[in-house]
Nucleic acid binder design. Structure first.
Length: 276
DNA sequence: CGATTTCCCTGGCCGC
DNA sequence: TGCGGCCAGGGAAATC
């Protein structure tokens, strides 16, 4: 379940390996969700950045004198997606490959995704019309645009539960189920709340930033499938305070954490610390 | 037209 | 041991 910290961890690991590499050839598993991978043939990588949970790999045609990013290879990892650069001929460690790109230097970029919730798209740079969530993506959590007032207006202006809003990617980019539960617990906000005071909005904004920054520092959260681009595990699973702890004691007040379903997502919260 | 529901996927786990 | 049932859940399509 790669969320912003997991995707950012992978981005940082891939960046030095991919920058300047030429994509000589490509292969995909035969479904339309991944077939765009083939369109990256004959390009070189000019940049690799992240927006929310999306990785955007800038590509330039290799025959250009001055490489300028003109297309973007977009990869979303879905639930179980993994990306890694491996040496050609190295022992095979990936059992659910959905796309591979042969790189200069006898290396291969592998996209592996057991459950196929991931997605690959190749677009003209900046043209995200075929990806509605990316098109409408909210501010990056660490950007100045992600203000308490922005958060408060979005939440108070809708009847949807605040957790649903956080997962929707339009209010803020990159938050998924794990970090949403953590941030709401840290801020003392009920996941079904749909109202924030100014003061509470500031606390929640800060806690969203705190928990995502902590997740990045820890190299992500590995619960089931997540692995970084070197095949390693994250460390944040050892620091979770709320997510997945239903039935256990609240670290703050000792009450028993409860599990409910919000927006078809399993949700853990403290009935005492997080009042409506 | 915005909000809500359904569907896509497979591995791991549980109970019988 | 085998197997049915269930759960994990982000995003896009379908439907309300």
């Amino acid at each position: 379940m790669p969320e912003l910290p997991e995707v950012e961890t992978i981005r940082r690991q891939l960046e030095p390996k991919l920058l300047g590499a030429t994509i000589l050839d490509a292969w995909t598993f035969g479904t339309p969700k991944f077939s765009d991978a083939l369109l990256a043939r004959g390009t070189s990588v000019t940049q690799i950045r992240r927006l929310g949970k999306y990785l955007l790999i800038g590509l330039a045609a290799v025959d250009q004198a001055e490489p300028t990013t003109e297309r973007e290879l977009i990869v979303h990892l879905g639930m179980t997606g993994r990306l890694a650069v491996v040496e050609e001929g190295a022992p095979e460690d990936y059992f659910h490959k959905r796309a591979t790109w042969n790189l200069s230097g006898d290396r291969i970029l592998v996209f592996d995704d057991v459950r196929r919730f991931g997605r690959i798209a190749l677009v003209d740079a900046g043209d995200y019309g075929s990806l509605p969530t990316l098109s409408a993506l909210g501010p990056e959590p660490f950007d100045d645009a992600f203000t308490p007032e922005h958060l408060r207006r979005a939440v108070n202006g809708s009847r949807r539960a605040i957790k649903t809003q956080l997962l929707g990617q339009r209010v803020v980019a990159g938050v998924g189920n794990i970090y949403a539960d953590e941030a709401l617990w840290l801020a003392g906000v009920h996941p079904r709340s749909h109202h924030l005071t100014r003061a509470r909005a500031e606390i929640l904004r800060d806690e969203i930033r705190n928990v995502l920054a902590s997740g990045i520092d820890d190299g992500g959260t590995t619960l089931r499938n997540y692995r970084d681009a070197d095949g390693g595990s994250g460390n944040h699973q050892n620091k979770l305070l709320c997510y997945g702890r239903a039935g256990l004691d609240c670290r703050r007040c000792g009450s028993i954490l409860r599990r409910i379903v919000v927006d078809a997502r399993s949700t853990t919260y403290c009935p005492v610390c997080q009042r409506r």
